[in-house]
C-alpha cells in the first residue's frame, strides 16, 4: 500500500535520518533529507553522499545519523560510487541472491554536484543507471567556509568573491544545472524547495517510480553562509519561489511543466534584503545591480513559461489526434 502524502500518516513512519547530527542550528539540509526519505518511506533505499556539509556532519567518527545503508567515498564521485552499488544490486538480483525492490538515491551538495562531481554525475546519467540524484543546493561551499561555487547567484558575497570596491560579489551568472541535466535526455529532472513540501515529495515519489536516471535540484537555505537568522530557512525558501528566483518545475521525458506559479510575483528585493550576502546591494549608488538581477530573473522566468507553452500546445495536438 502506498502511504498517502499527509503529515499525520507520514509521522507514523520511522525517520531514517536521526537527530544527533552536527549540522548547524536551523540548517535546511536535514529537513530536505527528512522530506526525501519520508517520500521514499515505502521502499528500502540506499543513499550515497559526496563530501559536503551533510556528509561531514552526519557521520563524524563512529556516529552516523543514517538508518539506511549509506556510503561516502570522496567529493567528486558520489554518482560513480552509487553507479557501482546499483550495478552490483542488478547483478545480485539476476543471480537470485536478492529479491527486494531497492531504490538508490544520491544526496549531495552543490559543490559536489555543480562543480567537482559534474563529470561523474554526467557519466552516471548517460550510462542510464537506475538512480535518483538529489542536489541539496545551498549555493556555495558552506562546509569549508563559504567559497563561491557554480551555484552561487550573481552578486552574492562569498569569501572568494568578497563584495567591496572592486567587485559587487560574484560577477558571473550561476550555472543552470537543472537545464544541463535535462539536456542529458534523462526521463525525469525537477527543481523543488522545502517550503513547498507536497510538491517536493510528489516529485521524489514520481522520480522513484520512473526507471532510469533522475535528477532533482532542491533549494536549501544556509543561515551561516547567507548571513541570515537561524529561524528563516523555510521563509527564505518560500520567498525564493514567490520571487521566481527559484522556479519550481519538472522536465518529464523532455516536456517542461511549471509546477507552481506564484499568484503575485514578488520583487526580488524581498528575498535579497533578508540576507547579509546581498547587503552591499542596498548601499546607495548600487540600485542598478538589483534591477540587473531582477532583469535576469524575469528573463529566466519568461523563457521557462514559453518553454512550457511550446510543450503544452503539442500535448493538446496529440490529444486531438487521439480523438
Amino acid at each position: 500500500m502506498v502511504t498517502p502524502l499527509n503529515l499525520k500518516e507520514l509521522s507514523k513512519k520511522e525517520l531514517r535520518f536521526t537527530a544527533g547530527h552536527r549540522l548547524c542550528a536551523g540548517c535546511a539540509a536535514p529537513t530536505v533529507v527528512k522530506m526525501i526519505l519520508l517520500a521514499a518511506c515505502d521502499y528500502p533505499v540506499v543513499v550515497a553522499s559526496s563530501t559536503g556539509c551533510l556528509e561531514v556532519s552526519s557521520c563524524i567518527s563512529t556516529y552516523t545519523a543514517w538508518k539506511v545503508p549509506w556510503i561516502h567515498s570522496a567529493f567528486e564521485n558520489a554518482a560513480a560510487t552509487l553507479s557501482g552499488v546499483e550495478s552490483m544490486y542488478k547483478a545480485l538480483k539476476k543471480q537470485g541472491k536478492i529479491d527486494k525492490e531497492i531504490k538508490f538515491i544520491a544526496i549531495c551538495g552543490d559543490g559536489g554536484t555543480y562543480d567537482i562531481g559534474l563529470q561523474s554525475l554526467s557519466g552516471a546519467m548517460e550510462r542510464w543507471h537506475d538512480m535518483l540524484y538529489v542536489c541539496y543546493n545551498n549555493e556555495a561551499y558552506m562546509n569549508t567556509g563559504i567559497q563561491r561555487s557554480g551555484a552561487t547567484p550573481t552578486y552574492a558575497d562569498t569569501t572568494t568573491c568578497p563584495a567591496g570596491s572592486v567587485i559587487p560579489g560574484k560577477p558571473q551568472p550561476r550555472k543552470d544545472l537543472t537545464k544541463i541535466m535535462a539536456a542529458h535526455g534523462i526521463p525525469y529532472v525537477a527543481q523543488a524547495a522545502p517550503s513547498h513540501w507536497p510538491d517536493l515529495m510528489k516529485k521524489v515519489r514520481k522520480a522513484l517510480e520512473i526507471p532510469g536516471p533522475k535528477f532533482m535540484n532542491i533549494f536549501t537555505p544556509c543561515n551561516r553562509g547567507w548571513r541570515t537568522r537561524t529561524d528563516d530557512a523555510i521563509l527564505l525558501s518560500r520567498l525564493a519561489v514567490d520571487t521566481c528566483f527559484w522556479p519550481l518545475y519538472e522536465v518529464e521525458k523532455g516536456v517542461v511543466r511549471v509546477t507552481y506559479k506564484p499568484k503575485e510575483k514578488k520583487p526580488i528585493e524581498e528575498f535579497l534584503k533578508l540576507q547579509g550576502r546581498f547587503r552591499h546591494l542596498f548601499e546607495p549608488g548600487r540600485e542598478q545591480l538589483i534591477s540587473e538581477l531582477q532583469r535576469m530573473i524575469d528573463e529566466n522566468w519568461e523563457r521557462l513559461l514559453k518553454e512550457e507553452e511550446i510543450f503544452a500546445s503539442k500535448e493538446e495536438e496529440k490529444e486531438e489526434v487521439v480523438k
Binding site: L7, K8, E9, L10, S11, K12, L15, F17, T18, A19, G20, H21, L23, C24, A25, G26, C27, A28, A29, P30, T31, K34, M35, P194, W197, N223, R229, T230, D231, D232, A233, I234
Partner: peptide, 28 residues
C-alpha cells in the same frame, strides 16, 4: 516536518512536547 533535529515528538499522529535533548534552539 520542518524541525531539522527531529526535536518535535509525535505519537500516533498527535503532537507531543519538544525533545529538548536534541533541540538546537534555531526557532524555525
Amino acid at each position: 516536518l520542518y524541525c531539522p533535529d527531529n526535536a518535535v515528538k509525535v505519537e500516533d499522529g498527535k503532537r507531543q512536547d519538544f525533545d529538548y535533548e536534541y533541540c538546537k534552539g534555531c526557532g524555525l
